[in-house]
Design a protein around this nucleic acid. Structure first.
Lengths: 137, 137
DNA sequence: TATTGTTATACTCTATAACTATA
DNA sequence: TATAGTTATAGAGTATAACAATA
């Protein structure tokens, strides 16, 4: 069945990219989760609960993650003036710089793979991934 | 640039599929790594070092992973007659059944996404993923 | 009362270093 | 000596339950 081959390809592709992301994170002592946190915060300033939900993690897990990232000066906690229970999270300048740098390395690491496709195929792949990945299971 | 859009799509796709795999594993108290171990052992009987290298993990990490999976009756260690230092790893019948079951759930979970593509596009996507993912950075 | 976030606890995942057994 | 694997240790990631502060 074609759909089985596609599932296999998606899963294999996933572990391949996870490998690249993990390696690039590890070079800076960052886990895949921390790498993802930095990536998300590049253009957002969510509250703790929002970020936990987005990552699919418990809020207590996020407290620990943000504690450690804050201790390293990569993120900061801010008060929310509308609701004093809420804690907003955002990148420090150092965190933003690190995030941009690492995502540059991700692009660099994936470039050889991407260059195996001609421009038409790249566009096609982007379109197909968008089609497949919008609101999945 | 097109390649940036493709990198973004690949990374987003990766976290999406990781989310599906993590959820399906968690329903059986299996981490993403354990899920992957079971997936790999479906059709292989590697030695500890080979499996560690394939996963990109230290051999000591693998000892712990296999300890816990063995304690749950999912995998077993076997002696290697050629070299008595070597430990081979393989699935138990229970482990094989669980692995097949979970990978069935993965296919099921990804089916709605896949069904958003017509058969031609599915084939196309499989081909493009294969082209991109062979021996990446 | 309900929600937001933290803390305490326990377990898994992970790497490094030191070790045992075999080659 | 070198290689295969385990163990000891330490730290990060994770969820559950109990908690404090605010709504």
């Amino acid at each position: 069945m074609t759909s089985d081959a596609l599932v296999d390809a998606l899963v294999r592709n996933t572990f391949q990219v996870v490998g690249v992301l993990t390696r690039i994170g590890a070079e800076r002592d960052l886990s895949l989760t921390q790498l993802r946190v930095l990536g998300i915060l590049r253009d957002r300033r969510p509250r703790m609960t929002e970020l936990a939900a987005f990552l699919g993690l418990d809020k207590s897990t996020l407290s620990g993650l943000i504690d450690r990232a804050e201790r390293r000066g990569l993120v900061a906690r801010g008060k929310n003036p509308q609701d004093r229970r809420v804690v907003d999270v955002f990148l420090t300048p150092a965190g933003l710089e690190l995030a941009e740098q690492m995502y540059g390395e991700v692009r660099h690491a994936l470039t050889p793979a991407i260059n195996r496709l001609d421009p038409q195929d790249r566009d096609q792949l982007v379109q197909l991934l968008h089609a497949v990945m919008h609101s999945p299971g």
